[in-house]
């Protein structure tokens, strides 16, 4: 207990320090205090801070003005709070894990209605849920009805498909659309196939040989 308390006391200032250090020179100076304050608030509420820092860095890279950066970070903080609330309503014990909050925030940003997110959370009571959320969001991006999309993914979970393979389910439904089927037909066809939807191809040997790691970031 003492160890955890010590780590928490150490982690607080470190989080603040690292956020400022990362923003310095990358984000307009006028935005840094406000963004840093929002990052500290998120940290205090047990929310992930990385999405907020990323949003500020993105704004800086895109040469957005300081007020717009702060506004965007504020919106992101609101999405993280909504995500946390959904997770708690869905049955996750607080404090919810930062990774899951980020996952649910992604789902909301990608247009999944809260009740649909909650249905997926109930179907998958334990993390990781990122693949399931993205699979439903992919279906919605292809103009499937959110509830019907969630039904398909929940059916796949029920058939024992591992979370990693849920993205193959949404990909299979998108393929059926490309073949000229209606949305309802595509869902029905993929549901019949479950759990044997084709797996996405692994990277080819030539792709692996070509792959390189991103260059190390240069100091600002």
């Amino acid at each position: 207990m003492k160890l955890w308390l010590g780590l928490a006391l150490l982690a607080g200032p470190l989080a603040a320090q690292s956020a400022e250090a990362r923003l310095e020179g990358r984000v307009p100076g006028a935005a840094i205090p406000a963004v840093d304050s929002l990052v500290q608030r998120a940290y205090a509420e047990g929310l992930p801070t990385e999405p907020l820092i990323q949003k500020a860095l993105e704004g800086g890279a895109k040469q957005v003005t300081a007020p717009r950066i702060v506004a965007a970070v504020q919106v992101s903080l609101g999405q993280l709070r909504d995500a946390r609330d959904l997770l708690v309503h869905g049955g996750d014990e607080p404090p919810v894990t930062p990774g899951e909050v980020t996952t649910v925030a992604w789902a909301l940003r990608r247009g999944l209605p809260g009740p649909v997110v909650q249905r997926v959370l109930v179907a998958l009571p334990r993390p990781p849920r990122a693949s399931a959320m993205h699979a439903v969001a992919d279906l919605v991006a292809h103009h499937f009805d959110p509830d019907s999309g969630a039904d398909l993914i929940i059916a796949a979970i029920g058939q024992g498909l591992v979370p990693e393979r849920l993205l193959d389910v949404s990909a299979a439904a998108a393929r059926e659309l490309q073949r000229g089927h209606t949305h309802a037909e595509a869902l029905a066809l993929v549901r019949q196939e479950l759990p044997n939807v084709p797996a996405s191809p692994k990277p080819t040997r030539s792709a692996v040989a070509r792959a390189r790691r991103p260059a190390a970031p240069t100091p600002p």
């Binding site: 990358r26 990323q54 800086g60 890279a61 895109k62 991103p214 260059a215 970031p217 240069t218």
Partner: peptide
């Protein structure tokens, strides 16, 4: 390509 995988830093990829 610039994104959350490289801190939105242009030039690394």
């Amino acid at each position: 390509v610039v994104g959350s995988f490289n801190d939105w830093r242009s030039g690394s990829i």
